Computed example of a mutant assay.
Amino acid sequence: MEIHQSTVILLLLLCVSSYTHAQPAHTMRRYQNFLNHHRGPYVNVEMCTSEIRHRKITDSAGYCKPVNSFIRAPDHLITAVCRGGTRLYYNLFRSGTPFDVVTCRLKSGQTHPDCEYDRGRLSIGNIVLGCEHGLPVHYES
């Protein structure tokens, strides 16, 4: 019996989908917020202001974030840190492989949409994530 590659891919997608859908609502909200704030597979150093405005990224009080970092990787590689990274504390994990990260620093403004950011800085290194129920919910800068 031959298993086609498309069948294997479909089964993997179903497993990942069922894993994330089985998470508590609070964890899923935090995970979605994390993705909005920190996942940026195509974000480059020239895109800080436009990307942060487009995503309406602010701090918890609604002010411009002084610093925001975008991890240049797809969801599954970022999420894998929570399952296969080195545990630093009970919910903090460090990646075993380096990631490209674009870090944006606030230049001017206090509230959205007036936040202006300097040109980002690209760095490559291991990342540290706060995880909840196997999903990233916090980026530790």
Rank of each mutant, 00 (worst) to 15 (best):
N68P: 14
L92N: 08
S95Y: 09
H54G: 06
Y117E: 06
A73S: 15
S123Y: 04
V128C: 04
G109P: 09
I78N: 02
R105Q: 13
H76I: 13
F93M: 11
T86P: 04
C82M: 00
I57T: 10
L88S: 07
L122W: 00
H54R: 15
L122G: 12
Y90N: 03
H54P: 09
G125T: 11
V102I: 14
D100N: 11
T97L: 01
R105G: 03
V67C: 06
R121F: 13
K65N: 05
K56T: 07
L129K: 03
T79F: 04
I124S: 15
P74K: 04
I57C: 01
I57V: 14
G85D: 02
P74E: 14
A80F: 13
N91D: 05
I127S: 08
F93N: 05
C115W: 02
R94W: 04
D59V: 13
R72Y: 07
D100F: 02
S95A: 06
Y117L: 03
D59L: 07
L88P: 14
A61S: 15
Q110P: 01
I57L: 12
S123L: 00
V128P: 08
I127P: 14
S108C: 02
G85Y: 03
L129C: 13
S123A: 04
I57Q: 00
L106G: 13
E116F: 08
D75H: 11
R87F: 02
L77Y: 07
V67H: 09
P98F: 00
T58P: 04
T103S: 11
D59K: 05
G62S: 01
F99V: 08
I127K: 05
K65Y: 06
G85C: 00
I71T: 11
R87Q: 05
N126L: 10
G125Y: 01
H112G: 11
G84P: 14
K56H: 10
C104E: 03
C64H: 00
G109W: 00
Y90R: 04
L88M: 13
L92Y: 09
V101H: 04
R119M: 10
Y117C: 12
T97N: 01
H54D: 11
R72N: 13
D75W: 05
I127Q: 01
V81Q: 03
L129N: 05
R119L: 09
R105K: 13
R53C: 00
T103Y: 12
E116P: 07
G62L: 03
S123D: 03
R55G: 02
R53E: 04
C115H: 00
G84W: 07
Y117K: 08
S60Y: 12
H54N: 12
L92P: 05
Y89D: 10
P98G: 01
K107C: 06
Y90I: 05
V101L: 01
V67I: 10
E116K: 13
T86G: 03
T103F: 06
S69M: 12
V128S: 07
R83G: 14
R105M: 10
G85V: 02
Y90H: 11
P66N: 13
Y117A: 12
V102F: 02
D75E: 14
G120T: 12
A73P: 10
V81T: 05
D100R: 12
Q110Y: 11
G62C: 03
Y63C: 07
G62Y: 05
I124P: 07
R87L: 08
R119N: 15
V67G: 01
R87E: 08
Y89Q: 08
R119T: 15
V101F: 00
F99D: 13
D114K: 15
R53T: 06
